[in-house]
Design a binder for these strands. Structure first.
Lengths: 254, 254
DNA sequence: GAATACTATTCGATATTGTCGAATGGCGTT
DNA sequence: AACGCCATTCGACAATATCGAATAGTATTC
Protein backbone atom coordinates (compact mmCIF):
# COMPACT_ATOMS: atom_id res chain seq x y z
CA UNK A 1 0.00 0.00 0.00
CA UNK A 2 1.34 3.33 -1.01
CA UNK A 3 0.62 5.80 1.74
CA UNK A 4 0.45 8.87 -0.49
CA UNK A 5 -2.16 7.20 -2.70
CA UNK A 6 -4.16 6.12 0.34
CA UNK A 7 -4.10 9.68 1.55
CA UNK A 8 -5.19 11.01 -1.82
CA UNK A 9 -8.10 8.57 -1.76
CA UNK A 10 -8.85 9.83 1.75
CA UNK A 11 -9.13 13.38 0.40
CA UNK A 12 -11.54 12.22 -2.30
CA UNK A 13 -13.57 10.34 0.30
CA UNK A 14 -13.73 13.37 2.58
CA UNK A 15 -14.93 15.54 -0.30
CA UNK A 16 -17.47 12.88 -1.23
CA UNK A 17 -18.93 13.28 2.26
CA UNK A 18 -18.73 16.99 3.00
CA UNK A 19 -18.74 18.19 -0.61
CA UNK A 20 -16.75 21.42 -0.03
CA UNK A 21 -13.77 21.62 2.28
CA UNK A 22 -10.85 23.95 2.86
CA UNK A 23 -7.32 22.79 3.38
CA UNK A 24 -7.45 23.17 7.17
CA UNK A 25 -10.72 21.28 7.36
CA UNK A 26 -9.34 18.47 5.22
CA UNK A 27 -6.19 18.40 7.33
CA UNK A 28 -8.25 18.13 10.47
CA UNK A 29 -10.46 15.42 8.98
CA UNK A 30 -7.46 13.36 7.86
CA UNK A 31 -5.21 14.05 10.83
CA UNK A 32 -2.42 15.47 8.69
CA UNK A 33 -0.47 18.70 8.50
CA UNK A 34 -2.12 21.40 6.36
CA UNK A 35 0.96 21.64 4.18
CA UNK A 36 0.83 17.89 3.52
CA UNK A 37 -2.82 18.08 2.54
CA UNK A 38 -2.06 21.06 0.37
CA UNK A 39 0.44 18.97 -1.58
CA UNK A 40 -2.05 16.15 -2.00
CA UNK A 41 -4.85 18.45 -3.10
CA UNK A 42 -2.64 20.28 -5.60
CA UNK A 43 -1.60 16.98 -7.11
CA UNK A 44 -5.21 15.86 -7.45
CA UNK A 45 -6.13 19.25 -8.85
CA UNK A 46 -3.51 18.97 -11.57
CA UNK A 47 -5.40 15.94 -12.86
CA UNK A 48 -8.87 17.45 -12.54
CA UNK A 49 -9.78 15.06 -9.74
CA UNK A 50 -10.51 18.02 -7.47
CA UNK A 51 -11.20 21.66 -8.25
CA UNK A 52 -11.18 24.82 -6.23
CA UNK A 53 -14.68 26.14 -5.69
CA UNK A 54 -15.20 29.28 -7.79
CA UNK A 55 -14.55 32.38 -5.70
CA UNK A 56 -13.54 30.61 -2.52
CA UNK A 57 -10.68 28.73 -0.89
CA UNK A 58 -12.54 25.49 -0.65
CA UNK A 59 -12.09 22.46 -2.78
CA UNK A 60 -14.57 19.97 -4.21
CA UNK A 61 -14.52 16.91 -6.48
CA UNK A 62 -13.52 17.54 -10.10
CA UNK A 63 -14.60 16.72 -13.66
CA UNK A 64 -12.06 14.00 -14.37
CA UNK A 65 -14.08 11.75 -12.09
CA UNK A 66 -17.06 12.04 -14.40
CA UNK A 67 -15.02 11.14 -17.44
CA UNK A 68 -13.45 8.17 -15.67
CA UNK A 69 -16.81 6.97 -14.38
CA UNK A 70 -18.21 7.05 -17.88
CA UNK A 71 -15.45 4.66 -18.90
CA UNK A 72 -16.21 2.52 -15.84
CA UNK A 73 -19.84 2.23 -16.93
CA UNK A 74 -18.85 1.44 -20.51
CA UNK A 75 -16.44 -1.22 -19.36
CA UNK A 76 -18.86 -2.96 -17.04
CA UNK A 77 -19.85 -6.09 -18.91
CA UNK A 78 -22.80 -7.10 -16.75
CA UNK A 79 -24.26 -3.65 -17.19
CA UNK A 80 -23.72 -3.64 -20.94
CA UNK A 81 -25.44 -7.01 -21.27
CA UNK A 82 -28.22 -6.20 -18.84
CA UNK A 83 -29.36 -2.93 -20.37
CA UNK A 84 -31.70 -4.24 -23.02
CA UNK A 85 -33.30 -6.64 -20.55
CA UNK A 86 -33.81 -4.07 -17.83
CA UNK A 87 -35.34 -1.72 -20.38
CA UNK A 88 -37.79 -4.44 -21.39
CA UNK A 89 -38.54 -5.21 -17.74
CA UNK A 90 -39.32 -1.53 -17.11
CA UNK A 91 -41.61 -1.49 -20.11
CA UNK A 92 -43.45 -4.68 -19.12
CA UNK A 93 -43.84 -3.83 -15.42
CA UNK A 94 -44.29 -0.07 -15.74
CA UNK A 95 -41.79 0.34 -12.90
CA UNK A 96 -38.34 1.79 -12.58
CA UNK A 97 -35.45 -0.68 -12.57
CA UNK A 98 -32.08 -0.56 -10.85
CA UNK A 99 -28.99 -2.63 -11.43
CA UNK A 100 -26.65 -2.66 -8.44
CA UNK A 101 -23.23 -3.91 -7.40
CA UNK A 102 -21.37 -4.05 -4.10
CA UNK A 103 -19.12 -1.16 -3.17
CA UNK A 104 -17.54 -1.81 0.21
CA UNK A 105 -20.47 -2.06 2.64
CA UNK A 106 -22.98 -0.43 0.32
CA UNK A 107 -24.78 -1.11 -2.90
CA UNK A 108 -24.06 1.14 -5.86
CA UNK A 109 -26.64 1.66 -8.61
CA UNK A 110 -24.82 1.21 -11.91
CA UNK A 111 -27.81 1.37 -14.19
CA UNK A 112 -31.27 2.77 -13.86
CA UNK A 113 -34.31 2.63 -16.12
CA UNK A 114 -36.91 5.21 -15.32
CA UNK A 115 -40.55 4.31 -15.00
CA UNK A 116 -41.93 4.47 -18.55
CA UNK A 117 -44.78 6.82 -17.67
CA UNK A 118 -42.80 9.92 -18.65
CA UNK A 119 -42.94 11.38 -15.14
CA UNK A 120 -40.05 13.41 -13.87
CA UNK A 121 -37.67 11.11 -12.06
CA UNK A 122 -34.30 11.48 -10.50
CA UNK A 123 -31.33 10.04 -12.31
CA UNK A 124 -30.08 7.29 -10.02
CA UNK A 125 -26.96 5.83 -11.59
CA UNK A 126 -24.11 6.43 -9.16
CA UNK A 127 -26.38 6.51 -6.12
CA UNK A 128 -25.30 4.37 -3.21
CA UNK A 129 -27.58 2.78 -0.65
CA UNK A 130 -26.97 0.91 2.57
CA UNK A 131 -27.05 -2.75 1.67
CA UNK A 132 -29.24 -3.90 4.54
CA UNK A 133 -32.04 -1.48 3.70
CA UNK A 134 -32.45 -2.15 0.01
CA UNK A 135 -33.63 -5.20 -1.90
CA UNK A 136 -30.57 -4.85 -4.18
CA UNK A 137 -28.30 -4.93 -1.17
CA UNK A 138 -30.10 -7.81 0.48
CA UNK A 139 -29.53 -9.93 -2.62
CA UNK A 140 -25.81 -9.18 -2.54
CA UNK A 141 -25.67 -9.96 1.19
CA UNK A 142 -27.64 -13.19 0.81
CA UNK A 143 -25.23 -14.68 -1.70
CA UNK A 144 -21.91 -13.35 -0.45
CA UNK A 145 -21.39 -14.77 3.00
CA UNK A 146 -18.28 -12.71 3.74
CA UNK A 147 -20.08 -9.53 2.80
CA UNK A 148 -23.00 -10.49 5.03
CA UNK A 149 -20.69 -11.28 7.95
CA UNK A 150 -18.98 -7.98 7.59
CA UNK A 151 -22.16 -5.89 7.35
CA UNK A 152 -23.88 -7.80 10.14
CA UNK A 153 -21.05 -7.29 12.55
CA UNK A 154 -21.50 -3.53 12.31
CA UNK A 155 -24.53 -1.49 13.37
CA UNK A 156 -27.46 -1.56 10.98
CA UNK A 157 -28.51 2.04 10.58
CA UNK A 158 -32.24 2.77 10.42
CA UNK A 159 -33.21 4.84 7.40
CA UNK A 160 -36.94 4.73 8.19
CA UNK A 161 -38.99 3.30 11.00
CA UNK A 162 -39.40 0.19 8.87
CA UNK A 163 -35.72 -0.57 8.32
CA UNK A 164 -34.74 -3.98 9.67
CA UNK A 165 -31.87 -3.25 12.08
CA UNK A 166 -31.87 -6.43 14.15
CA UNK A 167 -29.04 -8.70 12.93
CA UNK A 168 -30.82 -11.98 13.65
CA UNK A 169 -33.91 -10.77 11.85
CA UNK A 170 -31.86 -9.76 8.84
CA UNK A 171 -29.97 -13.07 8.78
CA UNK A 172 -33.26 -14.90 8.76
CA UNK A 173 -34.50 -12.69 5.98
CA UNK A 174 -31.37 -13.40 3.93
CA UNK A 175 -32.05 -17.12 4.25
CA UNK A 176 -35.50 -16.46 2.83
CA UNK A 177 -33.93 -14.53 -0.05
CA UNK A 178 -31.96 -17.61 -1.05
CA UNK A 179 -35.06 -19.83 -0.79
CA UNK A 180 -37.14 -17.55 -2.98
CA UNK A 181 -34.33 -16.14 -5.15
CA UNK A 182 -35.95 -12.79 -4.47
CA UNK A 183 -35.22 -10.09 -1.90
CA UNK A 184 -37.83 -7.62 -0.81
CA UNK A 185 -37.86 -4.23 0.80
CA UNK A 186 -40.89 -2.27 1.91
CA UNK A 187 -40.39 1.34 3.00
CA UNK A 188 -37.01 0.43 4.48
CA UNK A 189 -34.85 2.84 2.52
CA UNK A 190 -37.34 5.54 1.58
CA UNK A 191 -40.87 5.85 2.90
CA UNK A 192 -43.42 5.19 0.21
CA UNK A 193 -41.00 3.22 -1.90
CA UNK A 194 -40.65 -0.55 -2.01
CA UNK A 195 -38.75 -3.00 -4.17
CA UNK A 196 -38.00 -6.59 -5.09
CA UNK A 197 -34.63 -7.78 -6.41
CA UNK A 198 -33.00 -10.89 -7.88
CA UNK A 199 -29.37 -12.04 -8.22
CA UNK A 200 -27.17 -12.01 -11.31
CA UNK A 201 -24.36 -14.52 -11.25
CA UNK A 202 -21.34 -14.99 -13.50
CA UNK A 203 -19.40 -17.95 -14.92
CA UNK A 204 -17.86 -18.74 -11.55
CA UNK A 205 -21.25 -18.85 -9.86
CA UNK A 206 -20.60 -15.72 -7.84
CA UNK A 207 -23.36 -13.14 -7.55
CA UNK A 208 -21.83 -10.08 -9.15
CA UNK A 209 -24.88 -7.81 -9.38
CA UNK A 210 -28.58 -7.60 -8.62
CA UNK A 211 -31.54 -6.31 -10.58
CA UNK A 212 -34.39 -4.56 -8.77
CA UNK A 213 -37.92 -3.45 -9.55
CA UNK A 214 -38.84 -0.30 -7.62
CA UNK A 215 -42.48 0.60 -7.00
CA UNK A 216 -44.60 2.88 -4.89
CA UNK A 217 -45.54 1.10 -1.67
CA UNK A 218 -49.20 1.44 -2.73
CA UNK A 219 -48.40 -1.06 -5.47
CA UNK A 220 -46.59 -3.50 -3.17
CA UNK A 221 -46.42 -6.50 -3.07
CA UNK A 222 -46.09 -7.18 -6.77
CA UNK A 223 -47.90 -10.13 -8.32
CA UNK A 224 -46.33 -13.53 -8.76
CA UNK A 225 -46.23 -12.77 -12.43
CA UNK A 226 -44.01 -9.76 -11.83
CA UNK A 227 -41.79 -11.76 -9.48
CA UNK A 228 -41.36 -14.46 -12.08
CA UNK A 229 -40.61 -11.88 -14.74
CA UNK A 230 -37.90 -10.51 -12.45
CA UNK A 231 -36.43 -13.99 -11.90
CA UNK A 232 -36.45 -14.66 -15.59
CA UNK A 233 -34.73 -11.38 -16.33
CA UNK A 234 -32.04 -12.08 -13.74
CA UNK A 235 -31.56 -15.55 -15.17
CA UNK A 236 -31.31 -14.21 -18.72
CA UNK A 237 -28.74 -11.58 -17.78
CA UNK A 238 -26.78 -14.17 -15.78
CA UNK A 239 -26.68 -16.46 -18.78
CA UNK A 240 -25.40 -13.64 -20.98
CA UNK A 241 -22.42 -13.19 -18.68
CA UNK A 242 -21.70 -16.89 -18.48
CA UNK A 243 -23.69 -17.75 -15.36
CA UNK A 244 -25.39 -20.93 -16.50
CA UNK A 245 -26.62 -22.14 -13.09
CA UNK A 246 -29.41 -19.97 -11.86
CA UNK A 247 -30.44 -19.50 -9.09
CA UNK A 248 -26.94 -19.24 -7.62
CA UNK A 249 -25.74 -20.54 -4.24
CA UNK A 250 -24.41 -18.46 -1.36
CA UNK A 251 -20.63 -18.59 -1.23
CA UNK A 252 -17.44 -17.18 0.20
CA UNK A 253 -15.45 -15.49 -2.52
CA UNK A 254 -11.96 -15.90 -0.99
CA UNK B 1 3.39 17.75 -6.90
CA UNK B 2 3.44 14.41 -5.28
CA UNK B 3 4.93 11.92 -7.67
CA UNK B 4 3.11 8.89 -6.37
CA UNK B 5 -0.25 10.63 -6.82
CA UNK B 6 0.72 11.74 -10.34
CA UNK B 7 1.58 8.17 -11.12
CA UNK B 8 -1.70 6.90 -9.72
CA UNK B 9 -3.54 9.39 -11.91
CA UNK B 10 -1.44 8.12 -14.80
CA UNK B 11 -2.73 4.61 -14.16
CA UNK B 12 -6.33 5.85 -14.14
CA UNK B 13 -5.69 7.75 -17.36
CA UNK B 14 -4.17 4.70 -19.05
CA UNK B 15 -7.18 2.59 -18.05
CA UNK B 16 -9.49 5.32 -19.30
CA UNK B 17 -7.86 4.95 -22.71
CA UNK B 18 -7.29 1.22 -23.12
CA UNK B 19 -10.03 0.04 -20.71
CA UNK B 20 -8.33 -3.25 -19.69
CA UNK B 21 -4.62 -3.53 -18.99
CA UNK B 22 -2.30 -5.96 -17.25
CA UNK B 23 0.46 -4.88 -14.92
CA UNK B 24 3.20 -5.29 -17.55
CA UNK B 25 1.21 -3.32 -20.10
CA UNK B 26 0.59 -0.53 -17.59
CA UNK B 27 4.26 -0.56 -16.66
CA UNK B 28 5.24 -0.27 -20.30
CA UNK B 29 2.73 2.51 -20.90
CA UNK B 30 3.92 4.52 -17.91
CA UNK B 31 7.64 3.76 -18.21
CA UNK B 32 7.85 2.29 -14.71
CA UNK B 33 8.94 -0.98 -13.19
CA UNK B 34 6.21 -3.64 -13.01
CA UNK B 35 6.62 -3.92 -9.25
CA UNK B 36 6.11 -0.17 -8.88
CA UNK B 37 2.96 -0.26 -10.94
CA UNK B 38 1.77 -3.25 -8.96
CA UNK B 39 2.02 -1.21 -5.77
CA UNK B 40 0.11 1.70 -7.31
CA UNK B 41 -2.61 -0.55 -8.70
CA UNK B 42 -3.04 -2.40 -5.41
CA UNK B 43 -3.41 0.90 -3.59
CA UNK B 44 -6.04 2.10 -6.04
CA UNK B 45 -7.78 -1.26 -5.85
CA UNK B 46 -8.06 -1.02 -2.07
CA UNK B 47 -10.21 2.08 -2.58
CA UNK B 48 -12.31 0.66 -5.41
CA UNK B 49 -10.77 3.04 -7.91
CA UNK B 50 -9.64 0.08 -10.01
CA UNK B 51 -10.76 -3.54 -10.04
CA UNK B 52 -9.32 -6.72 -11.42
CA UNK B 53 -11.29 -7.96 -14.40
CA UNK B 54 -13.26 -11.05 -13.42
CA UNK B 55 -11.36 -14.20 -14.36
CA UNK B 56 -8.24 -12.50 -15.71
CA UNK B 57 -5.12 -10.69 -14.65
CA UNK B 58 -6.08 -7.42 -16.18
CA UNK B 59 -7.29 -4.36 -14.37
CA UNK B 60 -9.96 -1.81 -15.23
CA UNK B 61 -11.52 1.26 -13.66
CA UNK B 62 -13.58 0.65 -10.52
CA UNK B 63 -16.95 1.54 -8.94
CA UNK B 64 -15.71 4.22 -6.54
CA UNK B 65 -15.30 6.49 -9.55
CA UNK B 66 -19.01 6.30 -10.23
CA UNK B 67 -19.89 7.17 -6.68
CA UNK B 68 -17.47 10.08 -6.64
CA UNK B 69 -18.70 11.36 -9.99
CA UNK B 70 -22.25 11.35 -8.70
CA UNK B 71 -21.11 13.69 -5.94
CA UNK B 72 -19.30 15.81 -8.51
CA UNK B 73 -22.51 16.20 -10.49
CA UNK B 74 -24.50 17.01 -7.34
CA UNK B 75 -21.96 19.59 -6.28
CA UNK B 76 -21.79 21.37 -9.60
CA UNK B 77 -23.77 24.54 -9.05
CA UNK B 78 -24.10 25.62 -12.69
CA UNK B 79 -25.49 22.20 -13.53
CA UNK B 80 -27.93 22.22 -10.63
CA UNK B 81 -29.22 25.62 -11.62
CA UNK B 82 -29.28 24.87 -15.32
CA UNK B 83 -31.27 21.65 -15.20
CA UNK B 84 -34.78 23.06 -15.16
CA UNK B 85 -33.93 25.50 -17.97
CA UNK B 86 -32.30 22.92 -20.21
CA UNK B 87 -35.29 20.65 -19.69
CA UNK B 88 -37.60 23.44 -20.79
CA UNK B 89 -35.36 24.18 -23.76
CA UNK B 90 -35.51 20.53 -24.81
CA UNK B 91 -39.28 20.61 -24.53
CA UNK B 92 -39.68 23.82 -26.51
CA UNK B 93 -37.21 22.94 -29.27
CA UNK B 94 -37.86 19.21 -29.47
CA UNK B 95 -34.08 18.71 -29.49
CA UNK B 96 -31.58 17.15 -27.16
CA UNK B 97 -29.58 19.53 -24.98
CA UNK B 98 -26.06 19.27 -23.61
CA UNK B 99 -24.37 21.27 -20.90
CA UNK B 100 -20.59 21.19 -21.13
CA UNK B 101 -17.49 22.31 -19.28
CA UNK B 102 -13.80 22.37 -20.09
CA UNK B 103 -11.68 19.42 -19.08
CA UNK B 104 -8.08 19.98 -20.14
CA UNK B 105 -8.22 20.30 -23.93
CA UNK B 106 -11.66 18.78 -24.28
CA UNK B 107 -15.25 19.54 -23.46
CA UNK B 108 -17.03 17.28 -20.98
CA UNK B 109 -20.81 16.87 -21.08
CA UNK B 110 -22.06 17.31 -17.52
CA UNK B 111 -25.76 17.26 -18.25
CA UNK B 112 -27.85 15.97 -21.07
CA UNK B 113 -31.54 16.21 -21.80
CA UNK B 114 -32.79 13.70 -24.32
CA UNK B 115 -34.93 14.70 -27.22
CA UNK B 116 -38.49 14.62 -25.89
CA UNK B 117 -39.81 12.35 -28.65
CA UNK B 118 -39.30 9.19 -26.58
CA UNK B 119 -36.81 7.69 -29.02
CA UNK B 120 -33.99 5.57 -27.75
CA UNK B 121 -30.99 7.78 -27.13
CA UNK B 122 -27.59 7.31 -25.68
CA UNK B 123 -26.90 8.67 -22.26
CA UNK B 124 -24.31 11.36 -22.79
CA UNK B 125 -23.36 12.74 -19.40
CA UNK B 126 -19.68 12.03 -18.90
CA UNK B 127 -18.94 11.97 -22.61
CA UNK B 128 -15.99 14.07 -23.71
CA UNK B 129 -15.57 15.69 -27.11
CA UNK B 130 -12.70 17.51 -28.77
CA UNK B 131 -13.32 21.19 -28.16
CA UNK B 132 -12.59 22.36 -31.70
CA UNK B 133 -15.16 20.02 -33.27
CA UNK B 134 -18.16 20.78 -31.08
CA UNK B 135 -20.29 23.87 -30.66
CA UNK B 136 -19.97 23.45 -26.87
CA UNK B 137 -16.21 23.43 -27.16
CA UNK B 138 -16.09 26.34 -29.57
CA UNK B 139 -17.95 28.47 -27.05
CA UNK B 140 -15.45 27.61 -24.35
CA UNK B 141 -12.57 28.34 -26.71
CA UNK B 142 -14.05 31.63 -27.89
CA UNK B 143 -14.29 33.08 -24.38
CA UNK B 144 -11.17 31.63 -22.77
CA UNK B 145 -8.21 33.00 -24.65
CA UNK B 146 -5.67 30.84 -22.85
CA UNK B 147 -7.65 27.71 -23.62
CA UNK B 148 -7.89 28.74 -27.27
CA UNK B 149 -4.16 29.43 -27.48
CA UNK B 150 -3.39 26.06 -26.01
CA UNK B 151 -5.73 24.09 -28.25
CA UNK B 152 -4.76 26.03 -31.35
CA UNK B 153 -1.08 25.39 -30.84
CA UNK B 154 -1.68 21.65 -31.09
CA UNK B 155 -2.94 19.69 -34.08
CA UNK B 156 -6.68 19.89 -34.68
CA UNK B 157 -7.77 16.33 -35.28
CA UNK B 158 -10.41 15.72 -37.96
CA UNK B 159 -13.36 13.71 -36.68
CA UNK B 160 -15.22 13.89 -39.99
CA UNK B 161 -14.46 15.35 -43.37
CA UNK B 162 -16.24 18.49 -42.21
CA UNK B 163 -14.19 19.15 -39.10
CA UNK B 164 -12.43 22.51 -39.20
CA UNK B 165 -8.75 21.68 -38.67
CA UNK B 166 -7.11 24.84 -40.00
CA UNK B 167 -6.08 27.04 -37.04
CA UNK B 168 -6.63 30.36 -38.80
CA UNK B 169 -10.06 29.26 -39.93
CA UNK B 170 -10.97 28.23 -36.41
CA UNK B 171 -9.66 31.47 -34.92
CA UNK B 172 -11.80 33.43 -37.34
CA UNK B 173 -14.78 31.27 -36.44
CA UNK B 174 -14.20 31.92 -32.74
CA UNK B 175 -14.33 35.65 -33.39
CA UNK B 176 -17.69 35.10 -35.04
CA UNK B 177 -18.85 33.19 -31.98
CA UNK B 178 -18.19 36.21 -29.80
CA UNK B 179 -19.99 38.51 -32.25
CA UNK B 180 -23.08 36.31 -32.39
CA UNK B 181 -22.85 34.86 -28.85
CA UNK B 182 -23.53 31.55 -30.59
CA UNK B 183 -21.22 28.80 -31.77
CA UNK B 184 -22.20 26.40 -34.49
CA UNK B 185 -21.13 22.98 -35.64
CA UNK B 186 -22.37 21.11 -38.67
CA UNK B 187 -21.31 17.48 -39.07
CA UNK B 188 -17.93 18.25 -37.50
CA UNK B 189 -18.04 15.81 -34.62
CA UNK B 190 -20.46 13.19 -35.91
CA UNK B 191 -21.83 12.95 -39.41
CA UNK B 192 -25.51 13.73 -39.52
CA UNK B 193 -25.44 15.68 -36.27
CA UNK B 194 -25.20 19.43 -35.90
CA UNK B 195 -25.46 21.85 -33.01
CA UNK B 196 -25.55 25.42 -31.77
CA UNK B 197 -24.25 26.52 -28.37
CA UNK B 198 -24.17 29.58 -26.12
CA UNK B 199 -21.98 30.63 -23.17
CA UNK B 200 -22.82 30.57 -19.47
CA UNK B 201 -20.82 33.01 -17.38
CA UNK B 202 -20.48 33.39 -13.64
CA UNK B 203 -20.18 36.31 -11.19
CA UNK B 204 -16.63 37.04 -12.29
CA UNK B 205 -17.61 37.22 -15.94
CA UNK B 206 -15.75 34.05 -16.83
CA UNK B 207 -17.45 31.56 -19.12
CA UNK B 208 -17.71 28.46 -16.96
CA UNK B 209 -19.98 26.29 -19.12
CA UNK B 210 -21.87 26.19 -22.38
CA UNK B 211 -25.34 25.00 -23.30
CA UNK B 212 -25.95 23.32 -26.65
CA UNK B 213 -28.91 22.31 -28.78
CA UNK B 214 -28.17 19.19 -30.82
CA UNK B 215 -30.15 18.38 -33.95
CA UNK B 216 -30.04 16.15 -37.00
CA UNK B 217 -28.23 17.93 -39.81
CA UNK B 218 -31.46 17.68 -41.84
CA UNK B 219 -32.91 20.20 -39.35
CA UNK B 220 -29.91 22.54 -39.49
CA UNK B 221 -29.63 25.54 -39.40
CA UNK B 222 -32.17 26.26 -36.67
CA UNK B 223 -34.47 29.26 -36.97
CA UNK B 224 -33.65 32.64 -35.44
CA UNK B 225 -36.35 31.93 -32.93
CA UNK B 226 -34.49 28.84 -31.71
CA UNK B 227 -31.21 30.74 -31.59
CA UNK B 228 -32.79 33.46 -29.48
CA UNK B 229 -34.34 30.89 -27.21
CA UNK B 230 -30.86 29.41 -26.74
CA UNK B 231 -29.38 32.82 -25.95
CA UNK B 232 -32.14 33.54 -23.50
CA UNK B 233 -31.61 30.22 -21.77
CA UNK B 234 -27.87 30.81 -21.48
CA UNK B 235 -28.54 34.27 -20.11
CA UNK B 236 -31.04 32.97 -17.57
CA UNK B 237 -28.70 30.27 -16.33
CA UNK B 238 -25.84 32.78 -16.17
CA UNK B 239 -27.95 35.10 -14.07
CA UNK B 240 -28.80 32.25 -11.70
CA UNK B 241 -25.11 31.71 -11.00
CA UNK B 242 -24.37 35.37 -10.54
CA UNK B 243 -23.37 36.25 -14.10
CA UNK B 244 -25.27 39.49 -14.55
CA UNK B 245 -23.51 40.71 -17.70
CA UNK B 246 -24.50 38.62 -20.64
CA UNK B 247 -23.13 38.15 -23.28
CA UNK B 248 -19.72 37.75 -21.64
CA UNK B 249 -16.36 38.97 -22.97
CA UNK B 250 -13.39 36.83 -23.94
CA UNK B 251 -10.78 36.84 -21.19
CA UNK B 252 -7.63 35.28 -19.82
CA UNK B 253 -8.38 33.58 -16.56
CA UNK B 254 -4.92 33.83 -14.94
C1' DG C 1 -7.38 52.45 5.39
C1' DA C 2 -5.19 49.80 9.27
C1' DA C 3 -5.20 46.03 12.46
C1' DT C 4 -6.34 41.45 13.45
C1' DA C 5 -7.35 36.68 12.93
C1' DC C 6 -7.49 32.90 10.22
C1' DT C 7 -6.31 30.09 6.33
C1' DA C 8 -3.54 28.94 2.32
C1' DT C 9 0.84 28.36 0.47
C1' DT C 10 5.92 28.11 0.34
C1' DC C 11 10.25 26.41 1.91
C1' DG C 12 13.75 23.29 3.39
C1' DA C 13 15.65 19.68 6.56
C1' DT C 14 15.23 14.94 7.24
C1' DA C 15 12.70 10.81 8.47
C1' DT C 16 10.10 7.91 6.01
C1' DT C 17 8.50 5.94 2.18
C1' DG C 18 8.30 4.52 -2.56
C1' DT C 19 11.06 2.50 -6.01
C1' DC C 20 13.16 -0.97 -8.57
C1' DG C 21 15.99 -5.11 -9.43
C1' DA C 22 16.16 -9.75 -8.21
C1' DA C 23 13.82 -13.65 -6.75
C1' DT C 24 9.78 -16.27 -6.39
C1' DG C 25 5.14 -17.68 -7.43
C1' DG C 26 1.26 -18.31 -10.55
C1' DC C 27 -0.94 -19.20 -14.90
C1' DG C 28 -1.58 -20.69 -19.57
C1' DT C 29 0.10 -23.28 -23.46
C1' DT C 30 2.34 -27.04 -25.62
C1' DA D 1 6.12 -32.02 -17.12
C1' DA D 2 8.53 -28.14 -19.33
C1' DC D 3 8.52 -23.60 -20.79
C1' DG D 4 7.48 -18.83 -21.24
C1' DC D 5 5.37 -15.00 -19.60
C1' DC D 6 3.32 -12.25 -16.25
C1' DA D 7 2.14 -11.08 -11.42
C1' DT D 8 3.71 -10.58 -6.90
C1' DT D 9 7.01 -10.45 -3.03
C1' DC D 10 11.09 -8.85 -0.82
C1' DG D 11 14.57 -5.80 0.84
C1' DA D 12 18.26 -2.19 0.23
C1' DC D 13 18.58 2.52 -0.23
C1' DA D 14 17.84 6.66 -3.03
C1' DA D 15 14.30 9.69 -3.51
C1' DT D 16 10.45 11.60 -2.04
C1' DA D 17 6.77 13.01 1.04
C1' DT D 18 6.17 15.06 5.31
C1' DC D 19 5.72 18.59 8.59
C1' DG D 20 7.08 22.69 11.28
C1' DA D 21 8.19 27.33 10.63
C1' DA D 22 7.77 31.25 7.93
C1' DT D 23 5.37 33.90 4.66
C1' DA D 24 1.50 35.39 1.86
C1' DG D 25 -3.35 36.06 1.12
C1' DT D 26 -8.09 36.96 2.49
C1' DA D 27 -11.97 38.37 5.18
C1' DT D 28 -13.70 40.91 8.98
C1' DT D 29 -13.87 44.60 12.17
C1' DC D 30 -13.06 49.20 13.68
Amino acid sequence: MIQAIDRAAGVLHALQGARHLGITELASELGLAPSTVHGIVKSLQAHGLVVKEPGSQRYMLGPTLLKLSNVYLDTHEVRARAMQWTRELARRTGCSIRLGVQLFDEVLVIHHNRRPDGSQQMYETGLSLPSHASALGKVLLAYDLDFADKVLEGALRPLTGDTVTEPTALRKELEGVVSASIATERDEAVLGESAVAAPICDRSGAVVAAVEIVMPTTEYPPSDEVLNDLRQTARTISREVGGSDWPPRPMRID
